[in-house]
Design a protein around this nucleic acid. Structure first.
Lengths: 242, 242
DNA sequence: CCAAAAGTGTTGGTAGTACACCCATGA
DNA sequence: TCATGGGTGTACTACCAACACTTTTGG
């Protein structure tokens, strides 16, 4: 195998030495709860380098698995998370981004409902935890760059696609959606205008159930997504500036 | 090096065999001329597999160069093109996308002014040529997927950023810009509305020079970009639906 | 004078924005 | 009855979309 690898390199592009770059995947997983707000999932590294540091879940890609499979496997192994939405974010390939060997990381961007499962640290992680987006820990490697890119993407994405289905529960009061948008966009949103805008798209259905109250205040109606219309709109790529 | 590589893999993520994935870059370079329209640059492969097929310029990344350096080097080597704008597009990592070994390709997306240089085939290419976007040849590997992704990106991008500076010359008649948008979006554009829209942004300066005529018809004024305003707007991320 | 391309304004519809008061509930 | 959060409508503005005739040039 090693021989064929060398031959391959020479053959393909006249490189003088065998290319020695490893490929890994990392995932920036966003979760949202009304209590905790918008959070990102990190694991605590078991091994050097950066042992004990917080880092994005991820790891080397196996020889026969696709990148997406690698992400899902690593998430499962390291944190027990089953992802709800996954898209490729960006590849980070700076030669010195890993202090040992060169490692190219293909970063992914994911959304989950954190209430849907319990976090558990596992194979490669001492611990796994959510951190609020405004209160991130020091991170290993260049993971802070990856996180920043993901936040930028999330912000951009939410203006042209109705994210939310992947982050909220089956039924939720309208104010949940509003708080989510407000958290992602990091600014206040006018309740009335926002509702008008959203309802125009027609992918939200108002149920006649009422919110169970967490404190005082008037309980709101619960809404749910009309999945058909929702995914149809997502596919068509609607414009969705809030 | 081989030993340390194996140790590294085991150490990092409990992989049983050494990861054997190569990393390459490929570039989808768009060019525009009023005569030829919107075109993409391809090279004709000198070597197997797909010898003699058309393919995207690209190749393996060297151990100590960044991905962007690799793209620029390959473009220079294979076609003599000096790129004008470059951004990462997507990484293609399917295990079987290369029939020999596994090769992950980080694809880039580029814009150039084709009139600025002559194409020349070189090291790894028998030939290099522009193909009109509506008349692409059969392509090697999964390059058609990469191209389609790039076209989708270009279409999306042009609606929220004023592309054009990178594709047009220093001075151009307004109709050039309009034809460019029309070519990218693949639909007709209302001349009056388009001009109103563009001029509102204020990054175009009308000069008092006239177009040299290619045929009959009234010659138009030449315009140029106000680079300062243009790049300021690009940075701020304007909304730019046409 | 004819063909080809450039230049130019108005109107109606739609969506965005700003803004304030009343209602239902729990404590 | 008070505090909390939910629910709702209007008026103004800005942008979008649709649309046709005149001007300048070359042949």
């Amino acid at each position: 195998m090693i021989l064929s690898s060398i031959k391959f390199s020479l053959y393909l592009s006249c490189v003088k030495v065998t290319q020695n770059i490893k490929v890994s995947v990392d995932a920036v997983v966003f979760g949202y709860t009304s209590e905790e707000g918008l959070s990102i999932l990190f694991i605590k590294r078991k091994i050097d380098p950066f042992q004990g540091s917080w880092a994005l879940p991820g790891g080397l890609v196996l020889n026969n698995e696709s990148l997406e499979e690698a992400v899902e496997r690593e998430l499962e192994e390291e944190s027990g998370v089953k992802i709800n939405y996954l898209e490729q974010l960006y590849s980070f390939g700076h030669p010195k981004r890993d202090p040992r060997n060169r490692v190219l990381s293909v970063a992914y961007f994911g959304l989950v409902r954190p209430t849907a499962f319990r976090l558990k640290a596992d194979t490669d992680a001492m611990d796994a935890a959510w951190f609020h987006i405004k209160d991130l820990p020091e991170l290993a490697f260049d993971h802070i760059d990856i996180v920043n890119k993901a936040i930028t993407r999330l912000k951009a994405k939410i203006t042209y696609e109705p994210i939310g289905f992947e982050l909220l529960g089956k039924k939720f009061p309208f104010s949940e959606l509003e708080k989510l948008y407000s958290a992602v966009l990091d600014r206040q949103i006018d309740r009335r205008n926002f509702k008008k805008k959203i309802m125009r798209f027609g992918f939200l259905i108002e149920t006649d159930e009422k919110q169970k109250l967490a404190g005082s205040g008037r309980p709101g109606n619960l809404f749910k997504f009309d999945e058909k219309k929702y995914f149809k709109l997502v596919k068509e790529g609607i414009n969705f500036e809030v």
